[in-house]
């Protein structure tokens, strides 16, 4: 087994609300191996972005990490570090490519000014060198470096924004990059260009990554291992090939089946009705059962836990052997 770059242990994140604390992330365990890309998929609101923010101890108010450990190889538990050590850890060791990069930049500053600010924040003695490095990365990403650094965030066009976002993520040479829906809202061609870049930097620099998306098609392109999240819990993890060829959890199967295809009977694909439940207080039973085709009395009684069904393949479901009636992909 190869080295683990980061391990998330027993992570619980709650958001306070009028009805009581809402569990956005519940007892999540994840392991990212060095040099690998872990796909984290699920519908919006399933807690996948919260997991990413928790991995940097930057969960937005009113959310808070209730318990858990974020163990980085060579650094220990992030949550145990001092505030200042955490601040310096962020971006130097783990960076993020955000969904809408231009919104994640201060609208009043040119990109170069923001890079210089980053240099100051991370106590980099030669800010000019960092700006130079930014220009180099721009070249590699087929961006006009001078123009990009001189631009204000709103002046960047669709595909450029995400590449500038990637440039910023690479700037401090982190070991891990979290990709938070970096291609959502992009056209298929821009999406492809971003994915190619991610593959390229992954191959060249051996960066480890977590790729968060609700689009299974994209995850299949980039991830080595996939974890499926539902209502704050991981319901299935498997190597990418296994997950897409032989998914076991009814939710994974439903997600896969909801993808409109370009071949075969178009009506074979089916959308997923209903919405995930909001988790307030104690939960009894499987959270997916309301939307599940295979639910039985057992699903109401107890909550299934992640269980190994195969090497590297774990599923949280009582009905994993249920046949779908349709051939999986």
């Amino acid at each position: 087994m190869s080295e683990v770059a980061v391990a998330v242990d027993d992570l619980v994140v709650e958001f306070s609300s009028d009805e009581g604390p809402v569990r956005a992330v519940d007892r999540v365990n994840l392991q990212l191996e060095r040099g690998k890309i872990l796909g984290l998929i699920g519908e919006s609101g399933c807690g996948k972005t919260t997991v990413a923010h928790a991995m940097l101890n930057a969960v937005a108010e009113p959310g808070r990490i209730v318990r858990g450990r974020i163990h980085y190889a060579g650094h220990g538990d992030l949550l145990g570090m001092s505030e200042e050590a955490q601040r310096l850890f962020r971006w130097q060791h783990v960076s993020v490519v955000f969904q809408a990069s231009q919104n994640t930049l201060n609208p009043l500053q040119r990109i170069e000014a923001q890079i210089r600010e980053l240099a100051r924040a991370h106590r980099i003695s030669n800010p000019n060198a960092l700006v130079g490095r930014a220009r180099e990365i721009c070249d590699r990403l087929r961006l006009d470096g001078r123009r990009m650094l001189d631009a204000y965030p709103h002046q960047l066009s669709g595909g450029m924004r995400q590449r500038v976002g990637i440039m910023l993520a690479l700037l401090l040479q982190p070991e891990i990059i979290l990709f938070d829906e970096p291609t959502t809202a992009l056209d298929s061609l821009s999406q492809e260009s971003v994915l190619r870049i991610i593959e390229e930097i992954h191959a060249k620099e051996g960066i480890s990554g977590v790729f968060i998306t609700h689009d299974l098609g994209i995850v299949a392109e980039v991830a080595d291992v996939v974890a499926v999240m539902y209502a704050g819990r991981i319901v299935e993890t498997a190597p990418t090939g296994t997950l897409f060829n032989a998914p076991r959890h009814p939710y994974s199967r439903a997600l896969l089946n909801a993808l409109p295809r370009l071949t075969g009977d178009p009506r074979a694909a089916k959308g997923l009705t209903g919405a995930p439940p909001k988790v307030v207080g104690e939960v009894a039973g499987c959270l997916f059962r309301e939307r599940c085709r295979f639910q039985t009395a057992q699903c109401k009684m107890a909550e299934p836990v992640l269980t190994s069904v195969d090497a590297d393949h774990r599923v949280a479901c009582f009905k994993i052997n249920e046949e779908d009636g349709r051939a999986s992909v």
């Binding site: 919104n103 994640t104 201060n106 980053l118 100051r120 924040a121």
Partner: peptide, 27 residues
């Protein structure tokens, strides 16, 4: 705004983040 969240993730100092907050609030 997203950039205030991102500022924290980028490891900017409290002073820098306050600066962004004040400048954007003045607008």
């Amino acid at each position: 705004d997203d950039f205030m969240m991102a500022d924290k993730i980028r490891g900017l100092t409290s002073a820098q983040r306050l600066d962004h907050l004040v400048n954007n609030s003045i607008l």
